[in-house]
Design a protein around this nucleic acid. Structure first.
Lengths: 222, 222
DNA sequence: AACTCTTTTTATAAAAGCCTAAAAGATTAG
DNA sequence: CTAATCTTTTAGGCTTTTATAAAAAGAGTT
């Protein structure tokens, strides 16, 4: 059986792996705010359980089994988020923390039922993909809004992080997934982006925000 | 913060208190299948936390605070059961175990939302009352089917235990809450009860079963 | 090859839960 | 009312989980 703590290590491994490919003990230590020796010994345990491939001084790698286990935790988390938003009417900014709790519940049929009620969704409310029942993730390649050029049309399809504060910020601007943004201008010196959308609405977004918005660039010309 | 283990002690205390008034360390030990010394030390901890009144060699008593805390755990459990049955289409025999897990989730808004979606239910799917937001329980006085007399009409309103096996047994006989049973006969020697219901259906129930069925005796005559 | 920086090892530790055996208290029978 | 018996608590210990700091070992670099 995998404990709550172990599930959190798995999630962190999963996230770091997809971001950087290589994951070191140090990375994990930073991500989880747990000292390196602690992480090292947990990785030995994981290695014995066959969840990671680990040799001293070398980067960690999730094994097939570990990847599956991690994917299933993420799956529980994201299914829960979707359920909370779609079936219980929570706002997308509220669900991350609640799901953080529910993801550790040991009751497969509960998550099965959610999945079924939701019609086997492929994405969570923040546009993050939901791993399948094998824990496997299909990667959709998103573009960042920060990569768009003036004149482009951009469809917002996901966000890079689900912090309450970031999502509330987007709520305030009336942003939602599926929204189409026209890139009016990009400031050279700081990378901020001016976008227009809806009925004459216009916003200036910092580069940081623009990097956090994912979607598709619908090139008009070219 | 109260741990999962502590919540289980609280639940047990709550159940035993309502059944027998007096709860001893021994009772608790039996109920939880944990040795007495372990229970004793946990009760000292509870006493320090102000959850029980405990003096050596005397029966335990939940304090106001303890009673409230226990009631709130039960509330989470029963709300969850109701939600699983009403909103997610689980069978009443499946939900106990799932709720046993979910009841420990620390996310008040989650349970709040359930309560709201369910229209602030007063009973769970097995007819057990749901404590209010203060953890207080309104006691409804049920009669046992085993107390009925031949000729009585009995409305099934609750069951004393929610074990999967018992509920599946009732499912097989097509029993459900709200069903009206006519008591045809009571066997003197073993207390078994013969009931008829619906369209010519008839069943013989052992005394044990009859003691597990709660409801109202609708006296026809007298 | 020596020095520095990073990572692992080793040795501890604290908390949570639980247990057995011994001691102390309560109860009951003579 | 006192001794024998039964019950409950105290004392002490064990295991697991998760974490740490300080020492040792390895890698990398000049």
């Amino acid at each position: 059986m995998t404990s709550l703590t172990e599930e959190n290590y798995l999630k962190a491994l999963f996230h770091l792996s997809s971001k950087k490919g290589e994951v070191t003990v140090k990375d994990l230590s930073n991500e989880l705010a747990i000292k390196m020796p602690t992480v090292t010994s947990m990785m030995k345990k994981f290695s014995e359980k066959g969840l990671v491939k680990y040799e001293s001084y070398k980067p960690l790698k999730l094994t097939e089994k570990g990847s599956r286990a991690a994917g299933l935790v993420i799956r529980k988390h994201r299914l829960t988020e979707m359920f909370l938003v779609e079936k219980m009417n929570f706002g997308w900014e509220e669900v991350h923390e609640i799901a953080e709790q529910i993801e550790h519940v040991k009751a497969p049929s509960f998550f099965e039922k959610m999945d079924q009620m939701l019609g086997h969704p492929k994405f969570d409310p923040h546009g993050s993909p939901i791993p399948d029942k094998e824990g496997k993730l299909e990667w959709k390649q998103f573009s960042k809004l920060s990569e768009a050029k003036a004149g482009d049309l951009f469809e917002l399809q996901a966000v890079t992080n689900s912090d309450t504060s970031f999502l509330s910020y987007l709520n305030n601007k009336n942003f939602y997934l599926g929204l189409h943004l026209k890139i009016v201008e990009i400031e050279e010196f700081d990378g901020s982006v001016v976008v227009s959308f809806g009925e004459n609405k216009m916003e200036v977004l910092s580069n940081k925000v623009a990097q956090g918005l994912l979607g598709e660039i619908l090139n008009l010309d070219s």
